[in-house]
Every structure is written in C-alpha cells, then in structure tokens.
Amino acid sequence: MLARVVHLLPLELKTLLERLPDQMQEQLEEIRIREGRPLEIGFRGQSRFMMADGSLRHTADGAYKPSADTCRKLLERITNYSLYAMEEELRRGFITVSGGHRIGLAGRTILDSGVVRGIRDIGAFNIRVAREVIGASTHLLPKLVDRTRKTLHSTLILAPPQQGKTTLVRDIARSVSYGLWPALETSGWQGRKVGIVDERSEIAACVRGIPTFDVGPRTDVMDACPKAEGMMMLLRSMSPEVLIADEIGRPEDGEAIREASHAGISVVATAHAYDLQDARGRPVLQRLLDEGAFTYIVELKRTVEGIMHRVVSANTIGRAATAREASAAHHRQPVDSAPVSSGRFRADDP
C-alpha cells in the first residue's frame, strides 16, 4: 500500500518509510505527519510512532520529527505546487489525490465573516491510503437482487466508521454497472445505470471530475456535491436506475431518497450506526425505515477474519420493532423474528 502513495512523499520521508518491513508496507492505512512532532503510522487499526532508524515504537520518545522544510515539500507535492487552486478542498479540510487517497489537513483556519474559507499554516497531514477491494460485494449482492425488476432492492448499509462501508458500496456500484451479477440465477442480466453522489469524494475519488476508482462503465458520479441536491440533480439529468449515496442522515437526504424510491429507482445508501436499533434512534433513518424506503438493511462488522455482514429484510423489522415496543424491552436484543442471513467477505480479497 505504501507503494501507492510513495510518489506523494518528499525524498526524506520516502526513504524512511521504505525501511518498513514489506508486510507492514502492505498493511499501511495511514501516515500522520505533523510538523516538528513525531511521525505516526497506522496499520490494521493500530498506530505506532516511527523512529529515525525506521523502527516502530508505542511511545513517542526519540521518534522522527518531520521538519518545516519536509512539510513544505509535502504540501507542494500533494497540491501540485498550487495551493491557490485548492480553495474548495481547503474549505472542506482534505485533498483527494489521484488513486483516491485522501489527505486530511489541519492548521490555522481563515475565517470570512464567521465561515471557514480555508486553512493556512498547514501543520498536520493525515494521508489515508485508499484501497479498492474488487469483489467486496460478491457474497452480499445475491441477497439484494430484485428478481422481478432484474435490479437491486433499495438497501441501507449500517456500520460504525472504518468498517468498509465505502469499499462495499463502491464494489456494488462497479458490479451493478458492469452487470457482474455474481449468482447463477442472475447471470445474463444486463448492467444498470448507476448514479453516485460522492459528497466526500470517497466512493469514486474523482480527480477533476473523472473517477480514479473503477466504478463501472455505466456509472455517473456527482463529485463533491451535497447528497440531497446531488441525488435530485442525478434523478433529473442522468436517469439512473440505481442511486448510491454515502452517509445519509440529514432531513433533506431523507426527502431525496423518498423522491427517488417513488420514481422507481433503487437506492443504496450507507449510514453511521452501530446496528439497526441504533439507526432507529435517528429520526431521519427511522422515518425512512418506517415508510419502507429500503427493502433490505445490511449491518457490517469488522472482525479479525474479515468483514461480516448481516442482511435484514425491512418489511419484517417493522413488525419486530412493534413487538419489541410492546414488550417494553429497552436493552439491545437481536431481531430474532426477522429472516436474517449473514456472510462475510475478507477485506483483503483480491
């Protein structure tokens, strides 16, 4: 994974990080660079400080500290020597570079009548290595197909952050767009037109409007666009058959999803929530679930062996929820009455 981002790094950081063992380079998830402070790297959900000799420690004592000059070179390289062309990115606080890697920035903000206009004196960088897991949705997809319409059912994917939601929806978009329906009964179905609203440039990782991840040949991406507006724009202009949005949660997102499902479009959306019960605590999600905007709910859990998924059918959870309320059970309990299927896929499947 290091090899994918190494071109962004100034020479001194590059030589240092290339001293990491091969396996570690492969598992690299984050490189956190803070000016004058210890260099930190993240891999497999853990973090370590990096010493000047390339070894890793838990404590920050004697760690390598990037100089102001190093940070300046890094900033120049990630902005293509043109910070002035990155105003929108600076307002959002991150830059997406080709390959889909996101570089989070922190520093002193510039305010313009109370609104953040950008960041100056950037002193901290977080390089998040993007990984594209082709085939991440292979096990899940057969459970979500709509056999009568030969497309996907509307699906809500729930998981806490860093559990592979984005990776999963990206692969769903790719498979549906190519028409790579994995199950035998669905073979021969054609691909569907897919519209992605990529508010945080994470799904398709567009650079100047062109996706750098393979999201399929029938896919249109509305990049860096607010989800609700983007969904409506795609609905009106690009006639998608499957609409994909990341991290819904605002009331206007709910409106747009309602609009889309009335238009007969399948919506695949993700939301931050620990599980279904957690999601029902959020008014927007609760309303969407009650109205039946989604046919299936998928919960993701990241475990040691890979990412587990659990599919719940939405028309049964309504009943399950009512039953639960009647029994006045306040503690978390599994939705036993719902037909549930689970499976898993490994995050590092080729």
Partner: peptide
Amino acid sequence: TLGISDKEDQ
C-alpha cells in the same frame, strides 16, 4: 511565495 498560499495572496 509562489504556489504555497491562497489566490489573493499569490
């Protein structure tokens, strides 16, 4: 100063 500040500054 080229390239490392915002538009107005440049």
